[in-house]
Design a protein around this nucleic acid. Structure first.
Lengths: 280, 280
DNA sequence: CCGGTCGGTCAATAAATTATTCTTGACACC
DNA sequence: GGTGTCAAGAATAATTTATTGACCGACCGG
């Protein structure tokens, strides 16, 4: 039980002096940090030994232990309060925090609409592929690039060609089982849809990552991952979309790390190599 | 800032013995309650005075005060965890959720160590700049690219040259007030530090975005933004780092959106143009 | 290469805080 | 009234913490 609660609970069965100590602590818990047993005793005009005995009677090893317990107690209390809807001091900090919360919602929703089995299936397809192409346009491009880098570090043959034409060229050499992973927020870009058709014609697998609303790319895909992110402010929604997409891809990556044989060892070796390269 | 976080932040700039103390505390925070400074010293085979000096150096009144702070810190931590909703049906879903939580922590910490004033200052510098260069290597490269795109949509003249040599060439035309924004996790890449020097020599401003531990790039920068992200699993830490970095940059972006004149209108016009381009 | 300085560490010790012991007085019960 | 119990305080012992001064090694400018 929390020390503060314990003190309050036992307060009624205490002697007069003990009760004075209890009251002081309950009222001034936050000041206790700077009080020695002697100072506390002085403040209450009682003897130092009474303070120590009070502590021991409550089950603490001694006065410093009581103090430690009270400290924990108020920190715990504060933490719980701070979890509740907060009133941010700075308007700026407030909007930063609001953004943070909205992102969490988007990430949660995204997690819920992608069943674990689906993510596992995508991971399996990536593992089975001889070659993986990742592509995305506009804001999705950097994400695609980052994902390709991650996959490469896991010794998955992944590339992220600069533009759609290059992808198309690369696809001409694609074999069965190869995977094209397309990031496309609205799933409506004709160029990407076209790439998907080319790949499927050659027996490859198309994995789409789009918003959860119905769209051409998604309906064409062998495997579809979905992202949910909504905000009435046009400048905020892309931030939510990216965070949710990021999280989805992170979870996929985590799955790959945890299920591929030797993944972590290889990852470490590759990362080490990359680090040396960059620092040279 | 939480004492534990503070210790972790300063760990890198500590002497060998101090680092041993820091590690012990970080690993055994929950045991500290029963350790006197002498016992802690014995456990580490060092002198008791080193423990006391360690405490004072970190800004505590003394060892008991440090202990008190750590106690608060872990109580706070525990409280936050216990408030969190528990839904661990699938082991896979559980690890996805754990990742999610860890990201939130990293983002929160990152938000706390970057005072609003600092972010405003960076936003102001970006607004005032004639030209903005964004750069990053390895995993930071896609982030840099995405940020440059975002800034460009706000009508800030921003570019993200492909490699350091190109940046260097671009810098030769840089004027006073231009800004170089460098994303560099550990702040230790000589090439980027060199770019910073070149720019500053021409009167430009260097903004660094690095981990919160001390590093050459950060100490050289006019304005420094900091990222906090920690995990014992080597394959998870980069995910946290990226999420926290992303959030920091998002907050910066939000600040720009909300303070620049006509920002939203321009953004909308530019986004529309980009959309048409991609769908054609 | 050499003195000088500085930061870090430790042993010794001073200072403080805490815990115990012992005494006293109040109160209840026999 | 005698006696046991118990809370409280004073004195003091024990422990813990903080400071001091000496030493060592790294670094630096001459």
């Amino acid at each position: 039980m929390s020390p503060l609660l314990k003190i309050r609970a036992e307060r009624d069965q205490m002697s007069a002096i003990e009760r004075r100590i209890a009251d002081f602590i309950l009222d001034n818990a936050h000041l206790l940090r700077d009080y020695s047993s002697q100072q506390l005793a002085d403040a209450l005009q009682i003897s130092q030994s009474s303070v120590v005995k009070f502590s021991q009677k409550l089950g603490f090893k001694g006065y410093p232990d009581l103090k430690y317990g009270i400290g924990e107690s108020i920190a715990h209390h504060r933490a719980q309060e701070s979890t509740a809807p907060r009133t941010a001091a700075d308007p700026f900090a407030a909007s930063a925090e609001a953004l943070w919360r909205r992102k969490q919602e988007a990430e949660s929703e995204t997690r819920l609409i992608n069943p674990p089995a689906q993510i596992r299936a995508v991971a399996a397809a990536l593992t089975a592929a001889t070659q993986v192409f990742v592509t995305g346009l506009g804001e999705d491009a950097p994400q695609a690039q980052a994902l390709a880098l991650r996959l490469a570090l896991l010794d998955i043959r992944a590339s992220c060609p600069g533009d759609a034409f290059v992808v198309s060229a690369a696809l001409s050499g694609a074999a069965r089982n190869d995977v094209l992973l397309v990031l496309c927020e609205h799933g409506r870009q004709p160029a990407l849809a076209q790439l998907g058709r080319e790949l499927r014609a050659r027996g490859g697998k198309l994995v789409s990552v789009t918003r959860h609303s119905a769209n051409p790319l998604r309906s064409q895909a062998d495997l579809a991952l979905l992202v949910s992110a909504h905000d009435e402010r046009a400048h905020v929604e892309p931030l939510l979309y990216r965070a949710a997409l990021q999280h989805l891809l992170d979870v996929l990556y985590l799955e790959l790390c945890e299920t591929r044989r030797d993944a972590l060892a290889r990852l470490q070796a590759n990362a080490e190599r990359l680090r040396r390269l960059l620092e040279s």
